[in-house]
Simulated scan of single mutants.
Amino acid sequence: MTAQEVRLTAWVRGHVQGVGFRWWVRSRALELGLAGAATNLDDGRVEVVAEGPRDRCEELLARLKSGATPGRVDSVGQRWTNSTGSFSGFVER
């Protein structure tokens, strides 16, 4: 872990709860070299947690906000914190 690494937590709202959307997030995150998870929440959102270099997390966030995903993204909320290094890869839950 380097000093430039951060944790992005994004909450994606829309028609996004499904294996296709979580798989898409995982594929993009791995492409960018990020660790983390994509998890369905009970309220219909998907929580995406990604850790890695800030510029790569920003790229993942931009892809989420662009709406070029399986499903329909209506909105994306986000929070930035320090990386915890608690992920060894990227998982779909």
Results as ranks from 00 to 15, higher is better:
T81I: 02
A38P: 00
L60S: 07
L8H: 14
D74M: 01
E51N: 11
C57V: 07
C57W: 08
V12H: 08
F90L: 06
A37F: 00
V12Q: 10
G77M: 08
K65N: 07
A38H: 00
A68I: 09
W11Y: 15
F90W: 05
A68G: 09
A37K: 04
L41C: 06
L30I: 11
G20Q: 09
V46M: 05
S75A: 15
H15S: 13
D42Q: 08
Q17Y: 10
S83N: 01
R28K: 15
W24I: 10
D43K: 01
T69N: 13
G52N: 11
C57S: 14
G18C: 05
V48S: 10
L30R: 15
T81G: 13
V25D: 05
Q78H: 07
R54P: 10
L30K: 15
E59C: 05
V12F: 10
T39M: 02
P70Q: 04
T69C: 10
G77A: 15
A62D: 14
R26P: 03
R54T: 09
R72C: 01
P70C: 05
R56S: 13
D55V: 12
S75F: 03
V48D: 10
G71M: 01
R72Q: 09
F21G: 07
D74Q: 07
V16Q: 07
V76A: 02
G67E: 04
T84N: 09
R54V: 05
V49L: 07
E59L: 13
L34N: 04
D74P: 00
Q78V: 03
D55L: 10
K65R: 15
R26I: 01
G89I: 03
V25Y: 04
S66W: 03
A50E: 08
G71W: 00
G89K: 10
E31M: 03
V12A: 11
A38I: 00
W23H: 13
C57H: 04
V76K: 02
R13T: 15
W11A: 11
N82T: 13
S83P: 06
A29G: 10
S66E: 04
V73N: 02
E31H: 06
G67T: 08
R63F: 04
C57D: 06
E47Y: 00
S27D: 15
S88D: 15
R54D: 10
V73S: 03
L60Q: 09
N40H: 00
A35R: 14
F21K: 04
W24D: 11
G20A: 14
F90K: 06
T84W: 02
E58L: 14
S27V: 09
A37N: 02
Q78P: 00
H15I: 13
L41I: 00
V12D: 12
W11V: 13
Q17P: 04
R79Q: 13
G67K: 06
G85W: 09
G33C: 03
S83C: 09
R45M: 02
A10N: 12
F21T: 11
R13Q: 14
R45G: 00
N82P: 05
T81F: 02
V19I: 14
A35L: 10
G67L: 05
V73P: 01
V76G: 02
W23M: 11
A50M: 06
G71A: 03
V12N: 12
R22A: 08
T84L: 12
T81Q: 13
A10V: 13
G71Y: 00
S83Y: 01
W23Y: 14
